[in-house]
Design a protein around this nucleic acid. Structure first.
Lengths: 181, 181
DNA sequence: GTTAACTGCAACATGAATGTTGCAGTAAAT
DNA sequence: ATTTACTGCAACATTCATGTTGCAGTTAAC
């Protein structure tokens, strides 16, 4: 039954993430129904609504952390690390479409982890600036925001674009823009 | 009293938009309190929660429509129209930060208006493609999504940047990208 | 000054979401 | 075969948001 339990739990998390992304006020009952389990079963696993949300956040943060690790943001050449990050983060963003910036406000632990991950990416952007991969007049915070926005856009508004192609599009738009020369 | 009524109503709409953007499940009571009016007063003006949301959407759509009109997207030169659109839409996005794409699902009338406005912008993007302002290999839908993402980003993550500067930053990132040549 | 329109306040009814518990059934582990 | 760990189901209590109504006070208009 351990296997079943783990499967159902992860099913609840994934289903919950999907529904909560569409409508953050989705009821536990709706999530349980969509995941194919009874409402009380969900309550037995997660003490309350917040605990379920925390679990979803944690799952997303775990996935994102793995992507950041594997992208080797501090060691690899900037273009390589950027592409690897993008290719990894797009599926994460799609699988856990919850808006972390908004929904994790009331979860200090998750917020802290998110901050840490955010800082890693900002450091990478700063390195890209320092090494001359970005125009000198570009504000690093703005660059960071643009990258996030492009990732969200390709991940959720173009679900059919596969991760490698998504990485190409985002990196291209980020570095070169869309304008004709 | 007409003046007071109009003032309070608009205050409720603006306050509601702000709170609902942060948390779409914000209660009517919270909105009323933040707007400085009694809960029952809100209920007297808006038959139910949906009616309040509809009013917020309508206010946003009205503002956005004015911006689209004044940008002269079909007549003015592409760079001019783009800049004028950006400078106008940023304050609108800030004043009515509700996510229209998500929250207007259950309001067919608002959805229709939104579609119409969206189509106007897409047509403009297509014109930019046709007139050679965008690279030939760029998908118009992707260009459109990028523009939206940049606008949202500058509007909400950089509230201190004033509209003209915001328009510069977005247009620059959109057309030229952030990368060094 | 009287009327009309509005407001806040209190009280109420209703429904929905949350969270709990007891019970019976089932499938794996021992 | 028995124990263990689950599950679904039904029933329940509680809390909260929603929406309504009556009443008294205030302000603008006539």
């Amino acid at each position: 039954m351990r296997a079943d339990a783990a499967r159902n739990l992860s099913s609840v998390l994934r289903t919950g993430a999907r529904l909560l992304a569409e409508d953050p006020s989705t009821s536990m009952a709706a999530i349980a129904a969509a995941a194919g389990v009874d409402r009380t079963t969900v309550h037995r696993r997660f003490a309350n609504r917040e605990a379920l949300l925390r679990a979803v956040f944690q799952a997303k943060l775990d996935s994102a952390e793995r992507v950041l690790d594997e992208a080797r943001l501090t060691e690899a050449p900037v273009p390589v690390a950027l592409h690897r990050y993008l290719e990894g983060i797009v599926p994460v963003s799609r699988e856990w479409p919850v808006d972390t910036r908004r929904m994790m406000q009331k979860d200090p632990e998750a917020s802290a982890r998110r901050e840490t991950q955010s800082a890693r990416l900002s450091t990478f952007i700063q390195r890209a600036c320092d090494e001359g991969y970005l125009r000198a007049d570009i504000d690093a915070a703005w660059a960071r925001a643009v990258l996030d926005a492009l990732v969200d856009s390709i991940a959720h508004r173009f679900p059919a674009v596969d991760p490698p192609q998504a990485a190409d599009l985002v990196a291209d738009a980020f570095l070169r823009g869309l304008g004709a020369t």
